[in-house]
């Protein structure tokens, strides 16, 4: 009995870590069976002119009406300007221009989707928020070869929702449109 006690005293840590790894393995197993993965990832559906797109909700901070945007001279092409959101100034992107879609007028449906990257936010102007779609990552296909480079720039794939094929906007790629990334690359 003495020996037993000795042993157990000496291995509390290893007992704990054994338990931990069992838990971790268990969790992984659960994931692999797809029990959790099947639920799909929430995407927000948006419209730019006549094109429809999807964007993963996880990056979206909020959606606001179109405020007054201030022009920033010499900003990159995709940047429309800057806006202030409760005191925070951030850049806003004009994807319609990026996609060479015709210039439109802001309407009552026009919104700005505010995205958050770490500590900084930025917005993208959209013509309309259409719907919310739950999309499984397996359904996102690669961007077809027929698309133009500019489209590749922001899409990380396409997905068929119902009858329509919609582009899936990639968050990381959107970031590249911003001046800060240009700064980093140039330096």
């Amino acid at each position: 009995m003495f020996r037993n006690v000795t042993l157990s005293l000496q291995t509390p840590e290893s007992a704990w870590s054994a338990m931990e790894s069992t838990l971790a393995n268990g969790a992984r197993d659960l994931m692999e069976t797809g029990a959790i993965a099947d639920a799909g990832i929430q995407h927000i559906g948006l419209r730019l002119a006549h094109e429809e797109f999807l964007l993963a909700v996880v990056h979206v901070r909020e959606i606001i009406m179109l405020p007054t945007v201030t022009y920033v001279p010499r900003a990159p092409a995709a940047v429309e300007g800057i806006l202030a959101l409760r005191g925070e100034i951030m850049p806003v992107l004009n994807l319609r221009r990026l996609w060479r879609l015709e210039r439109g007028q802001p309407t009552s449906h026009t919104r700005v989707i505010i995205l958050q990257h770490e500590d900084a936010g930025f917005g993208i102007i959209v013509d309309e928020i259409t719907d919310f779609v739950s999309l499984e990552s397996s359904l996102i296909e690669a961007v077809p070869a027929s698309y133009f480079a500019r489209e590749f720039a922001v899409l990380e794939g396409v997905a068929k929702v119902g009858e329509k094929v919609r582009g899936v906007l990639g968050f990381e790629r959107l970031l590249t449109l911003l001046p800060s990334s240009a700064d980093e690359e140039a330096s």
């Binding site: 920033v72 010499r74 800057i82 100034i89 951030m90 850049p91 930025f122 911003l178 001046p179 800060s180």
Partner: peptide, 15 residues
Amino acid sequence: SLGRLMGRQRGVAGG
């Protein structure tokens, strides 16, 4: 600041 993502614009101190 114009926002971290906006970077530094020449001639502009901030907003």
